[in-house]
Amino acid sequence: MAAYPQEYRYSKEHEWVKVSGNKARIGITDYAQQELGDVVFVDLPSVGDTITAGQPFAVVESVKSVSDVYAPVSGEIVAVNDHLSDSPELINQSPHDEGWICEVEMSNPAEVDELMTADEYQASVKSEAE
């Protein structure tokens, strides 16, 4: 299992957030990509879209399943990972780094405090698997 970076925060829907200043980079966790299997398509949001914590903003598909990606924080999208259009496998290969989905300018940075730490997330995943 890939390590869950300590500096990230995690949602119970298995998204991660990497905060730098007022910006947050978002992706899905290693656990999520393993559950999903080989990712074949990512329906990416667009720059300029507004996302709301707890609401779906992207879709990740494997051959025979479809999963919504829920926004862990609210804000306006300032960048999306276009590489995923041609190489959706980045989500499988590097979920916490090259497989990032988008970056937002947070409208309510306090939401980050609601999210889990790496240790908390790891514990919750462990209990989910059992």
């Binding site: 398509f41 598909e61 051959v63 025979k64 399943s65 479809v66």
Partner: peptide, 12 residues
């Protein structure tokens, strides 16, 4: 592209 279809995406 079976994820478009009813047997996977059902009402969507």
């Amino acid at each position: 592209l079976q994820t478009r279809e009813q047997h996977i995406r059902r009402e969507k």
